[in-house]
Amino acid sequence: MNQSKNLRPSAAFIGVSWVALLTGIIAFNVGLWNASMQLNEKGYYFTVLMFGLFSAISVQKAVRDQLEGIPVTNLYYGIAWFTTILTIALLTIGLWNADLARSEKGFYAISFVLSMFSAIAVQKNTRDLKFASEEESSTFKNTN
């Protein structure tokens, strides 16, 4: 039971992870909403954000599965990393060529990175909580 308790993330870390994720996503989208760019450009940046979040979570899951001995094909692992790097490249290329102030470009980049990092943290916390609760329930069943 002590081992599963050690794997359980603290409430503070869980809360900060969610706040960071929501802050990054909301800031990025509020920036898009208020931007004076065409709707297709806004759609591009929104799609890159969503694709980036999914890709980052996929990488985290694949890495964690491998560490826990859960089979992960090299193809899936490679695609997860490729798509994560691709989203960063797409955002970089888009911002590099955008007709935006440098401060706006930095705002989108920072919001994007914050969102991706915190998505990984939220996924990790979710998985750790599930694992810890399964360990606790199996320990409880074994003691009764």
Rank of each mutant, 00 (worst) to 15 (best):
96 W>V: 09
14 I>G: 02
115 S>T: 10
61 K>W: 12
65 D>C: 06
58 S>G: 12
116 M>K: 05
68 E>H: 08
139 T>H: 06
116 M>Q: 13
37 M>C: 09
139 T>G: 01
44 Y>I: 12
51 F>G: 08
55 S>L: 13
39 L>V: 14
19 V>E: 12
140 F>R: 15
122 V>H: 08
24 G>P: 07
94 G>W: 07
6 N>I: 06
37 M>G: 08
66 Q>K: 09
98 A>H: 08
108 Y>R: 08
65 D>I: 03
9 P>W: 00
102 R>I: 07
70 I>S: 13
22 L>I: 09
45 Y>S: 01
128 D>S: 15
139 T>I: 04
64 R>H: 10
34 N>C: 12
129 L>F: 00
133 S>L: 12
139 T>D: 02
76 Y>V: 07
1 M>D: 05
99 D>A: 07
6 N>E: 12
52 G>P: 10
11 A>E: 01
54 F>P: 00
30 V>L: 15
99 D>G: 03
3 Q>R: 06
43 G>E: 13
78 G>D: 06
121 A>L: 06
33 W>L: 15
135 E>P: 02
90 L>H: 02
125 N>D: 10
141 K>C: 03
23 T>C: 09
15 G>M: 04
42 K>A: 03
29 N>V: 05
130 K>W: 01
112 F>M: 14
20 A>N: 14
133 S>E: 15
47 T>L: 12
71 P>W: 11
83 T>M: 11
111 S>Q: 07
44 Y>Q: 03
82 F>K: 01
139 T>W: 04
98 A>D: 08
135 E>I: 01
128 D>F: 05
93 I>A: 04
73 T>K: 09
21 L>E: 02
72 V>S: 06
24 G>M: 06
65 D>S: 10
68 E>T: 05
74 N>P: 02
110 I>S: 11
92 T>H: 11
37 M>L: 14
66 Q>R: 11
73 T>R: 08
34 N>G: 15
22 L>V: 09
114 L>T: 14
142 N>H: 13
42 K>G: 02
117 F>E: 10
38 Q>F: 13
96 W>S: 07
6 N>G: 04
118 S>H: 03
43 G>A: 10
1 M>C: 06
37 M>V: 15
141 K>M: 08
99 D>W: 03
15 G>P: 01
75 L>G: 03
40 N>K: 14
129 L>Y: 00
32 L>C: 03
108 Y>T: 07
122 V>F: 09
20 A>K: 14
17 S>K: 03
65 D>H: 08
91 L>K: 09
94 G>P: 05
14 I>P: 01
107 F>H: 14
74 N>D: 15
40 N>L: 11
120 I>P: 02
7 L>Y: 04
19 V>L: 15
138 S>D: 01
128 D>V: 01
17 S>G: 07
106 G>F: 08
130 K>A: 15
137 S>I: 04
39 L>H: 12
55 S>I: 10
52 G>R: 06
143 T>P: 00
10 S>G: 06
60 Q>N: 12
106 G>W: 10
35 A>W: 01
11 A>W: 06
23 T>S: 15
